[in-house]
C-alpha cells in the first residue's frame, strides 16, 4: 500500500523513513543542524568553552563575603538617596553634563551628515567612500572612555575634551546609520531628480533628504540620550560632567550620594525617552 503510494512519485529515502516512522507513531522534530558530526562538535565546543571560561574566573569568595555588607549598603541607599550634602557638586556636574550632551550632539550630527553622505555607496565616489568608512570604523571601535583619555591628554582636563569625545563618537554612530539608510532609499526618486538636471546639492536636498529626514531626527534624539549616559562616564578620566562626582562618591563609599546621582540619571533618561517618543510621532 505504501509502496504503491510512493511508486509513482519517488521520495528521498530520509523522508520515506520519517513517514513510515510517523505512521507507526514514532516522530521527533527535525534537528536544527542536520549533520550528526557537526551537532557533536558544536555541543562539545560549547561545553569546552564553558569549562575554560569557568577556569579563568577566580572569585575571591571571602572578599565577596566582605563586600556583601557594602552591597547591602548600596541597595539600601537607593531607599534614602542623599541629594543635599553634595547638592552643589551634583548640580554643577549635572548642568555640565547636559550642556556637554547638547553641544556634542549638535556638532556631532552636523559633522556626521557629510560623513554619512560620503559613506553611502550609491551616492559617493569610491575614494570618498573608503575614507568615510574608515572614519566610521575607527570612531565605532573605540569606546567613548578610551577616546576621552586621548583627548584629555591633548586638550587638558575639562568639558571641552568631553564635548570633542562625544562629538567624535556621535559621528561614527550617526554616519553609519545614516549611510545605511541612504543606501536603503528608493532608487526611482534619485534617478528622477537627477534626470531633471539639478546640481549635486539640489539632488541631495530633493531626492535624498526627504527620504531619510524622519529617521535622522529620530536617531539624533536617540544619540542625545546615549550621549547623556556617556557623559556620566567620561568624567572618570577628567573630561567633565557628572562622572567625576559619581566616581568620587563611589570611591569614598558614599553610596547615598551615588544613589542620588544614579537616580537623577535614570529619571533624565526616562524623561528624554518620553520626549523623543513625542517628537518622533510629531515629525512623522
Amino acid at each position: 500500500m505504501s509502496a504503491a503510494d510512493t511508486g509513482n512519485e519517488p521520495l528521498p529515502s530520509l523522508e520515506q523513513q520519517r513517514i513510515a516512522q510517523a505512521r507507526e507513531g514514532r516522530w521527533r522534530p527535525l534537528p536544527l543542524i542536520r549533520s550528526r558530526h557537526w551537532r557533536w562538535i558544536i555541543n562539545l565546543s560549547v561545553l569546552l568553552y564553558v569549562v575554560l571560561a569557568w577556569l579563568s574566573v577566580d572569585v575571591n569568595w571571602s572578599r565577596v563575603a566582605q563586600g556583601m555588607e557594602r552591597g547591602q549598603a548600596f541597595v539600601a541607599s537607593f531607599l534614602q538617596p542623599d541629594f543635599t550634602s553634595r547638592g552643589g557638586e551634583i548640580l554643577t556636574g549635572l548642568w555640565e553634563s547636559l550642556t556637554m550632551t547638547f553641544t556634542a550632539t549638535v556638532i556631532g550630527v552636523a559633522l556626521a551628515i557629510p560623513v554619512g553622505l560620503g559613506a553611502a555607496r550609491n551616492i559617493a565616489p569610491l575614494p570618498v567612500y573608503f575614507v568615510c568608512r574608515g572614519i566610521i570604523a575607527v570612531s565605532r571601535t573605540f569606546q567613548e572612555i578610551i577616546i576621552a583619555i586621548l583627548f584629555v591628554t591633548m586638550f587638558g582636563f575639562g568639558p571641552l575634551a568631553g564635548v570633542i569625545t562625544l562629538a567624535f563618537a556621535t559621528i561614527g554612530f550617526m554616519a553609519k546609520l545614516l549611510a545605511e539608510d541612504i543606501e536603503d532609499t528608493q532608487k526611482e526618486p534619485l534617478e528622477a531628480i537627477r534626470a531633471t538636471g539639478g546640481g549635486w546639492l539640489q539632488w541631495i536636498n530633493y531626492a535624498v533628504q526627504p527620504q531619510v529626514m524622519p529617521r535622522l531626527i529620530g536617531l539624533s534624539l536617540y544619540r542625545l540620550d546615549i550621549n547623556f549616559r556617556e557623559s556620566a562616564v567620561i568624567g572618570i578620566v577628567g573630561a567633565g560632567g557628572i562622572g567625576a562626582t559619581l566616581n568620587t562618591s563611589i570611591n569614598r563609599y558614599d553610596y547615598d550620594t551615588s544613589a542620588a546621582i544614579l537616580l537623577l540619571i535614570i529619571v533624565i533618561v526616562l524623561m528624554s525617552e518620553y520626549l523623543s517618543g513625542y517628537v518622533r510621532k510629531w515629525t512623522q
Binding site: 520519517r18 507513531g25 514514532r26
Partner: peptide, 22 residues
C-alpha cells in the same frame, strides 16, 4: 505519546498532507 503521533499522521493523511509533516 505514540498514539497521538499516529493519530496526527492519520489526520494528515485524511486531509491529504501526509508527506508535508516536516
Amino acid at each position: 505519546p505514540s498514539s497521538d503521533i499516529q493519530q496526527a499522521f492519520n489526520l494528515l493523511e485524511r486531509v491529504g498532507l501526509q508527506t508535508m509533516f516536516d
